[in-house]
């Protein structure tokens, strides 16, 4: 027996050792690279920036956090939270029928087609997709062009005149930002819902029907509760991705910053890494809370 295989056999005989040996490399990676970096991030947020020269002073201070709680920055955080929540709810509503159809009715070739139809947009250059939306939503873009054709310009005008979510053009408004977010993250919602719907045993549905439940009752009392963890799992993605994105609101939006943009702007444009780090810590805190709730709702088993 050679030395390495002797070692391998030893590991197998002692399962604890095997587990340890297997876990060591990935844990080392995640703890050193990932958690280590998260720690560095926390540390950064306790530094501050020298305003004039733009250099970071590596000394402990709470000045950055004091600045974080300025009204304008609180606004940024709230705005992002609301957007993430609305995008998540809308994605779930749009995704459910697609996932439901794919899971319950599509078979064979149709099923493969559905899968690819969801995966294609997910994997085709995120940036180019966003720019395509800019063209769709522009004042002289495709939506307006179609609206003009159908004499529906008034509808767009009415939509844009809604206070706060409207604006001078779809691509300069929260409506536009919202649409693009829903578009970009929708596949992340469809896939987990579909997975959890596929796990609903058909016998259960039959039993429900046999016992005299209407289709609506079956859906409400059997299918939806069982698929709910999938919705929550999907919502982790849509919420988290919206929370951290800085490219969508920059290209389609109204110059009111979201958390991701604030991080990007502060670290890239103003070089204020400490403040950018503090904003990121806020996002971490929000996601931490979200994940804790999601775990309670069983989302991790549906991932």
């Amino acid at each position: 027996m050679t030395a390495p295989s002797a070692l391998a056999s030893l590991l197998f005989r002692k399962p604890g050792l095997l587990t340890f040996a297997l876990l060591a490399p990935p844990i080392f990676w995640l703890v050193v690279v990932y958690l280590g970096s998260l720690f560095a991030l926390m540390l950064q947020s306790f530094y501050a920036l020298d305003d004039f020269s733009g250099l970071i002073l590596h000394e402990f201070t709470l000045a950055t956090y004091a600045h974080l709680f300025d009204e304008a920055n609180i606004q940024i955080i709230l705005r992002t939270l609301i957007m993430a929540a609305v995008v998540t709810v809308a994605s779930a509503i749009i995704a459910f029928p697609i996932a439901y159809y794919a899971a319950r009715f599509a078979r064979g070739k149709m099923k493969a087609l559905f899968y690819l139809a969801v995966m294609m947009p997910l994997w085709s250059s995120y940036l180019v997709k966003i720019y395509a939306w800019k063209l769709i939503l522009a004042k002289e873009g495709i939506v307006s062009w179609v609206a003009n054709l159908l004499h529906g310009q008034w509808l767009i005008d009415a939509l844009l005149s809604i206070p706060s979510i409207g604006g001078s053009s779809l691509s300069f408004s929260y409506i536009g930002t919202f649409l693009v977010f829903v578009y970009i993250w929708l596949p992340y919602m469809i896939l987990p819902i579909q997975t959890s719907l596929e796990r609903v045993p058909y016998s259960l549905i039959e039993a429900s029907t046999d016992l005299g439940a209407t289709p609506a009752q079956t859906f409400r009392n059997i299918i939806f509760p069982l698929a709910f963890p999938g919705v929550v799992a999907g919502s982790i993605f849509t919420f988290s991705l919206t929370l951290g994105d800085y490219i969508v609101p920059q290209i389609v939006g109204n110059s009111r910053l979201m958390i991701g943009q604030a991080v990007y702007t502060f670290q890239g444009t103003s070089g204020d890494i400490p403040l950018a780090a503090a904003f990121t810590v806020v996002a971490m805190f929000i996601m931490g809370t979200y994940l804790t709730v999601a775990k309670r709702l069983g989302a991790f088993d549906a991932l």
């Binding site: 995640l30 970096s37 991705l241 951290g244 890494i273 950018a276």
Partner: peptide
């Protein structure tokens, strides 16, 4: 939980965290 964290947390956190670490 730790193993799904890098996907469950927004990419900007991973990015900014690494950026901070490189800086420090």
């Amino acid at each position: 939980l730790l193993f799904v964290l890098p996907i469950a947390l927004p990419g900007i956190i991973t990015g900014m965290a690494l950026r901070s670490a490189f800086d420090i």
